[in-house]
């Protein structure tokens, strides 16, 4: 008998709005957060103390930090990623027959989006272990090489987590994908929202987004090279001094601060890192002021 006429799904009925929110969330807050994140991390190039100071500033949000993290970072990224997958599934890349520049960028936008997503998932595991339950951290995350970052020993733990060839390479690929995805995403966003309409305006926008992408890539590789140029022992000494000062001034409560500090001695961690990677390519001591 007669097939009922198909009803649009919830997604189809609200797709216009969802796509616009998807487009927006890529810039605000996800893209904006990424810029800030990369710039904060690049401060390690200046000194471990600068970097540690920035991390303390972020953590001064205290119990608001998880709200900010979830509201402005995790949920928007998850939203962007989930609907990104839906969008990718709806397309059929055809650069083989139509190898035009914009079409290649269209395909790259999708490829880098997927790479960026897997990279971010790994990155959050590698640095934070995904969840903060003690049992999970001790029995799952740390044994698998995750949860390496301790906010109150920012530079030293980061440096130790960034050893070897594989991890820096993964980060280089991941960060490059993220930067491309943002820069090209801003360009497509300008068309989607109708900011640049004429071919000439779109060409100018391509140039501006290109320059923006290169600058951000420079910042990204600045923060990438930070841990490669940092001596974890020097960094740890500075961090200890800063920590002691905060405790002395009453700004930090040592009991509550414990889970944000590196566990164990630097020696053990260095040994652990050294067994993971025997080549210890440590670019010498960082300049300190």
């Amino acid at each position: 008998m007669a097939e009922p006429t198909p009803q649009p799904t919830f997604f189809q009925r609200h797709e216009f709005l969802i796509r616009r929110l998807h487009s927006l969330s890529g810039l605000i807050p996800v893209g904006a957060y990424m810029c800030v994140h990369l710039m904060v991390n690049a401060s390690l190039l200046n000194s471990p103390a600068s970097y540690q100071k920035a991390v303390y500033q972020i953590h001064s949000l205290g119990s608001f930090l998880p709200i900010v993290e979830w509201g402005f970072i995790f949920i928007p990224i998850l939203f962007h990623a989930i609907f990104g997958v839906v969008i990718i599934a709806g397309g059929l890349p055809n650069t083989g027959n139509y190898p035009y520049k914009a079409n290649i960028r269209y395909t790259l936008q999708r490829a880098t989006g997927v790479i960026a997503f897997f990279f971010i998932v790994y990155h959050v595991f590698h640095m934070h272990g995904w969840f903060h339950w003690d049992w999970w951290l001790d029995n799952v995350a740390r044994p698998l090489g995750g949860a390496r970052f301790a906010p109150y020993n920012a530079a030293s733990t980061l440096t130790l987590a960034f050893r070897g060839v594989v991890i820096p390479l993964v980060y280089a690929i991941g960060v490059t994908s993220c930067v491309y995805h943002l820069a090209n995403g801003i360009w497509t966003m300008g068309i989607t929202w109708g900011v640049w309409t004429s071919p000439a305006a779109q060409r100018r926008a391509t140039a501006v987004c290109g320059v923006f992408g290169l600058l951000l890539l420079a910042v990204a590789f600045g923060s990438w090279s930070g841990p490669l140029r940092t001596d974890p022992e020097d960094a740890r000494a500075v961090e200890q001094k800063m920590y002691n000062a905060k405790v002395a001034s009453g700004e930090l409560d040592p009991q509550q601060a414990e889970h944000k500090r590196a566990s164990g001695h630097l020696g053990e961690e260095t040994a652990a890192a050294a067994t993971e990677d025997s080549q210890q390519s440590n670019g010498g001591a960082t300049k300190s002021h």
Partner: peptide, 13 residues
């Protein structure tokens, strides 16, 4: 509406 301009992915083919 469903199937509207939002589907465009700016490939410019």
């Amino acid at each position: 509406a469903p199937g509207g301009i939002q589907i465009c992915g700016n490939a410019q083919n």
